[in-house]
């Protein structure tokens, strides 16, 4: 188990290194940072001076090395636009994004596991069709459209919920539902498929032959096994929730790092963009790693490989 974990952590570091290199070179290819800093009206000499001052005339490998060296010391430089340290800008906003992502995946799991289980217990019943309907809608509706519809209905017509900002818990209700509903179909269908397979397995027949109560058979013997792939998928979807928050945070004006990255992209604020991409990538990698370790814990057969 320990050796397995160490191996996975090493691979995770390699992935992050590759991601950081790709982000750095792509963002430097897509925009000229000197031009951004100097501004639209700057003369060619000014731009050249800025380029020298910030070291943008150095070879890109060298620039990357410097950036990486500082990043490892938790220094991502200053924002071109806000002239503030990137680390401070992010740390002040990351709580909002994490809260939203966590609430969204929680919402998705709370809906999808019970509904998927019920659907699996009675395939082709009314509840199964109902669950399928929810899944199809979730998959087909674009998140932003669903969010806008909620704003119109609950925010504008009925005035139940605030539509912009992040000052109270009520501000998180609609963003959570909009974001979480996006993850629901995949998690629910996987729960359903897993439960149907497990409920037909020999060890469930054994559990029933032992005279165990239906509750124990369902929760202890069936759900525990069916949930293993769902856990892995949920962790990956949590990563999607954090990344997907760019759209939702922008729509609901929740000032997390999703909103910040949208803002930074519009302004070609490269230090901010690079830092956020690296952070999102780290989330994915860490979450996938956690999912694997959690899987190994839940399924004793995995770590043996």
């Amino acid at each position: 188990m320990i050796a397995y974990a160490l191996k996975r952590i090493f691979v995770a570091f390699l992935i992050l290194l590759v991601v950081s290199g790709l982000t750095f070179s792509l963002s430097h290819l897509s925009a000229d940072p000197a031009l951004t800093i100097a501004g639209e009206q700057a003369s060619d000499e000014d731009i050249e001076a800025v380029r020298k001052l910030y070291g943008f005339d150095r070879p890109i490998v060298e620039q990357y090395g410097n950036w990486l060296g500082r990043a490892l010391q938790w220094d991502f430089g200053d924002s071109f636009h806000y002239k503030a340290p990137v680390v401070e800008m992010i740390s002040g906003r990351i709580g909002t994004t994490m809260t939203l992502g966590f609430l969204a995946i929680l919402f998705a799991l709370v809906i999808s596991i019970p509904l998927g289980t019920l659907a699996a217990m009675r395939p082709n019943s009314f509840i199964d069709r109902f669950a399928l309907l929810i899944a199809v809608f979730g998959q087909a509706l674009p998140t932003f459209w669903f969010a806008l519809m909620m704003i119109i209905v609950f925010g504008v017509w009925w005035r139940w919920l605030p539509i912009s900002g992040n000052t109270t818990w009520a501000h998180f209700v609609m963003p959570t539902i909009a974001l979480g509903y996006y993850a629901t179909p995949a998690l629910m269908r996987l729960t359903r498929a897993g439960m149907i397979e497990v409920l037909g397995s020999d060890y469930i027949r054994t559990a029933r032959a032992k005279g165990l109560s239906p509750t124990v058979v369902l929760f202890k013997h069936a759900l525990r096994n069916a949930i293993i792939p769902v856990v892995a998928l949920a962790a990956v979807w949590f990563g999607f929730m954090l990344g997907g928050s760019i759209v939702i945070e922008t729509i609901f004006n929740l000032k997390g790092i999703g909103w910040l990255s949208y803002d930074a992209l519009l302004r070609s604020d490269l230090p901010v963009v690079q830092a956020i991409v690296l952070i999102f990538a780290s989330f994915y990698v860490v979450l996938t790693l956690l999912a694997d370790l959690l899987n190994a814990y839940l399924d004793p057969r995995i770590s043996v490989r």
């Binding site: 054994t206 032959a209 096994n225 399924d299």
Partner: peptide
Amino acid sequence: AMIFQEPMTSLNPS
């Protein structure tokens, strides 16, 4: 009590 044909799959792996 019952003993089944498939010992490989009749026990819960978890």
